Simulated scan of single mutants.
Amino acid sequence: MKLQDKTIVITGGGQGLGLTMALSFAKDGANIALIDLNEELLKESVKKVAAAGNENIQVNYYLANVSKENEVEETFQQINKDFGGIDGLVNNAGILRDGMFVKAKDGVVSKKMSLENFQSVIDVNLTGVFLCGREAAVHMIEGKKEGVIINMSSIARGGNMGQTNYAAAKAGVVAMTTTWARELGRHGIRVGAIAPGVIRTAMTDSMKPEMRDRLEKMKPVGRLGEAEEIAHTAKYIFENEFFTGRVVEIDGGLCM
Rank of each mutant, 00 (worst) to 15 (best):
V102I: 15
G99Y: 02
D106K: 13
E135F: 14
G88A: 14
Q78D: 14
T75N: 06
I122W: 03
Q77D: 10
M113Y: 11
G99K: 05
I86M: 05
F101W: 08
L96K: 05
I86H: 01
G128Q: 03
N80S: 12
R134E: 01
V109H: 01
D87T: 05
K81T: 15
V90G: 09
E69G: 07
Q77T: 11
F118D: 02
R134W: 00
D82C: 09
K111H: 12
E69T: 13
K81D: 13
M100A: 14
N70P: 03
L126K: 12
I79H: 11
K112P: 03
E135Q: 13
L126S: 07
I122P: 01
F101P: 00
Q78S: 15
G94P: 02
E73Q: 14
S110K: 12
F101S: 11
V72G: 00
F101L: 14
A93M: 06
M100Y: 13
D82I: 10
L126H: 08
E71V: 11
V72S: 01
V109M: 09
N92S: 10
Q78P: 11
E71K: 08
G133R: 00
V121I: 07
D123R: 04
S114N: 04
C132S: 10
E135G: 07
R97V: 05
E71I: 12
V124D: 03
Q77R: 11
K103Q: 13
V124R: 02
R134T: 01
L96S: 10
E73T: 13
G128I: 05
D98H: 07
T127N: 11
